[in-house]
């Protein structure tokens, strides 16, 4: 019996030794050199593989960083400047400063504001609906409400509001990876500059129809009346396609445009409530504040 035991031990040890030698030999022979900095950069990245940088995953981005001459086109939106400074520290290069961004939803066609004209009954997917027809309302530009953007979000920064049928962005969680922008078949979601205290002013409508028609479809549509354009002191507002657009780079958050908008299409979010100074304007702003109030609570 002992000899059997002995034989087993010896033969197995020998076998293991031979296998180890073979493995060692092949590992040496077929070694692929990889820049160790890639691993270091990858460790510094958030590791969410969200694709916000334009690369399929964090590893690919790290490779690109190591290869790149300058960091002009490379930016990790999730990590923001901090991470890019770390990465540039590892690689000894200069990181370009970028402003943090945040997503906003440019449609306020809730059940209340936008009358439903028919009922969609098919696969619950925005792109399918978009390719088929205008959606449950007459507005051919507005949110379809099937939540493809919410499904695309990897950071739990969005949810569908049951009451309005619209997606809502949770500012704290949003990393501006752009997945929702890509997912939306109607390009409703925009990435805008993140201001302090997450304050936002934007036109919450992208309907390009003429004023009257747009108003008929949705009570809070931008009619392209140019009132905000005229009142803006900073040239931040441009008009085009019967729409006003506020450039988030130029906007100084003065809130003048919000007050003049006749349809409450311009939203101000996360601002302190206004002091009641000008009585005639209070009424007009109420609607907008209500909306902003609703969104800030989330």
């Amino acid at each position: 019996m002992n000899s059997v035991l002995l034989f087993t031990i010896i033969s197995l040890s020998l076998l293991g030794l031979v296998a180890a030698l073979i493995l060692y030999f092949f590992a040496q022979k077929f070694k692929v050199y990889e820049d160790p900095r890639i691993d270091q950069v990858e460790d510094a990245l958030p590791g969410a593989n969200c694709g916000g940088c334009g690369f399929p995953g964090c590893r690919n981005f790290a490779e690109a960083c190591v290869k790149a001459e300058t960091f002009d086109d490379l930016n990790c939106p999730v990590g923001g400047n901090e991470v890019m400074v770390t990465v540039s520290g590892i690689l000894g290069k200069e990181a370009g400063e970028t402003d943090p961004l945040v997503a906003v939803i440019r449609c306020n066609g809730s059940f209340e504001n936008r009358p439903r004209t028919n009922v969609y009954d098919g696969a619950q997917n925005c792109t399918i609906v978009h390719n088929l027809y205008t959606g449950d309302t007459d507005c051919p530009f507005g949110c379809l409400g099937h939540g493809e953007c919410v499904d695309a979000c990897n950071f739990e920064a969005m949810y569908m509001d049951e009451k309005t049928g619209l997606p809502v962005i949770i500012d704290e969680n949003c990393v501006a990876c752009g997945a929702c922008v890509e997912a939306c078949p109607r390009d409703i979601i925009e990435l805008r500059k993140r201001n302090k205290k997450d304050r936002k002013i934007f036109v919450s409508c992208i309907n390009e129809d003429k004023g009257g028609i747009a108003k008929k479809y949705c009570s809070v549509a931008c009619t392209g009346c140019t009132k905000c354009f005229k009142v803006c002191d900073y040239d931040a507002i441009t008009m085009g396609n019967n729409l006003a657009f506020i450039d988030s780079e130029k906007c100084k958050l003065c809130r003048k445009c919000v007050v003049v908008c006749p349809t409450n299409a311009i939203h101000e979010i996360n601002f302190p409530p206004r002091r009641v100074k000008e009585e005639e304007k209070v009424e007009e702003t109420e609607g907008a504040e209500e909306i902003s109030g609703k969104k800030t609570t989330n």
């Binding site: 969609y120 098919g122 088929l132």
Partner: peptide, 8 residues
């Protein structure tokens, strides 16, 4: 009444 729309 709202009419139904769906793909074929």
């Amino acid at each position: 009444k709202l009419i139904t729309v769906s793909p074929s």
